[in-house]
C-alpha cells in the first residue's frame, strides 16, 4: 500500500434487538475466523451480546426482532435516523417471525396463554416486521440467520452493491445438494414455498423446512396446499404450517 494512501475508515456497525430471542445476534459470535475478517473493515459499536460500550454514531444498523409496542417503534425511528443503512436481521425483523402468531389471538387471549395468572398490566401490542415501521435497506432472513449469508451480505454492502436474497424456493438449493426429498420419505416440508438462501439448512440435516425465511414473493400457495393435502394434512394443519413463521403477512393479506 502506498504511503500517501489514507488508511481506510472503518464502517461502524451497531446491533439492536426488539421482540425476539437474540439468537440471530448470538449467531454473529459464532463467525469465528470470518469475524476477524469482518473486524478488518468494521468497528462494532453496539452489540449487547458481546460488548458493553454503546454509541449512537454508526453507519449500519442491524435490527433484530419484531416491533410490538409504541415506544419500540419510537426507538426504531431514532435508529433509522442515525443509520445510513438499516438491515432487518432475522425472521422476526424481516417477516414478524414466530411472534406473528400473536395476531391469531386477541390481546387478552394472548396474555392469558402466555402469562396466565399474572395480575400486573402487560402490554401486548401487535407484532410488526421492521419494514412496517421504517424503511429497510436490506434483509437477512432466517431463524436463526446463516453466517455464510451474513458475510456475503456484508461484503455486498461494503462494496456498495447491496445484497438481494434469492427469490426462489429452498428446493433449488436442496436439490443441488442431492438430498432425498422429504416428500419422497413421506414427510412434508415448506421448502417449495419458502425463500432460499439458507443452503437448505434444515432439510440437509434431516429436518423439514418450517418456512422461517418467509414465503416466496409469489408462492404457489394453492399448489402447495394441494401437495400437503395429498400428503394427508387437514386444512387446519396446513394453516399451522404456513402460520408458524408467516402469520404476520398472511393475517395482513386477509385484511387487505
Amino acid at each position: 500500500m502506498s504511503k500517501n494512501k489514507k488508511k481506510k475508515e472503518k464502517v461502524r456497525i451497531a446491533f439492536f434487538d426488539f421482540a425476539d430471542c437474540e439468537g440471530c445476534q448470538l449467531q454473529v459470535t459464532y463467525l469465528n475466523e470470518a469475524f476477524l475478517g469482518v473486524l478488518e473493515h468494521c468497528d462494532i459499536v453496539n452489540f449487547r451480546e458481546a460488548i458493553s460500550e454503546r454509541s449512537d454514531d454508526y453507519d449500519i444498523a442491524f435490527v433484530e426482532g419484531s416491533i410490538t409496542r409504541e415506544h419500540d417503534a419510537e426507538r426504531l425511528k431514532e435508529i433509522r435516523k442515525n443509520a445510513k443503512i438499516l438491515i432487518a436481521y432475522g425472521a422476526c425483523a424481516c417477516i414478524g417471525g414466530i411472534n406473528g402468531l400473536r395476531k391469531k389471538y386477541t390481546a387478552d387471549e394472548a396474555i392469558n396463554i402466555v402469562y396466565a395468572g399474572r395480575k400486573d398490566p402487560i402490554e401486548a401490542g401487535e407484532p410488526k416486521p421492521v419494514h412496517d415501521v421504517v424503511k429497510v435497506d436490506h434483509y437477512i432472513h432466517g431463524c436463526p440467520t446463516s453466517n455464510d449469508e451474513l458475510v456475503e451480505a456484508l461484503k455486498g454492502i461494503l462494496l456498495g452493491k447491496g445484497y438481494t436474497p434469492p427469490d426462489y424456493a429452498v428446493c433449488v438449493e436442496c436439490k443441488l445438494k442431492e438430498n432425498v426429498c422429504l416428500f419422497e420419505k413421506g414427510q412434508v416440508c415448506m421448502g417449495p414455498v419458502t425463500r432460499a438462501g439458507c443452503n437448505s439448512w434444515c432439510p440437509s440435516w434431516g429436518n423439514t423446512c418450517y418456512g422461517c425465511r418467509g414465503l416466496l414473493p409469489n408462492p404457489a400457495k394453492e399448489g402447495q396446499m394441494d401437495v400437503l393435502e395429498k400428503n394427508g394434512y387437514t386444512i387446519n394443519e396446513l394453516e399451522q404450517k404456513f402460520d408458524l413463521y408467516n402469520a404476520c403477512k398472511l393475517e395482513a393479506d386477509k385484511n387487505e
Partner: peptide, 13 residues
C-alpha cells in the same frame, strides 16, 4: 402451470 410450484426440481434432475 396450475399445479407447478416453480421449485426447479424438474430441471435440476
Amino acid at each position: 402451470g396450475e399445479k407447478c410450484l416453480s421449485c426447479g426440481n424438474c430441471t435440476a434432475v
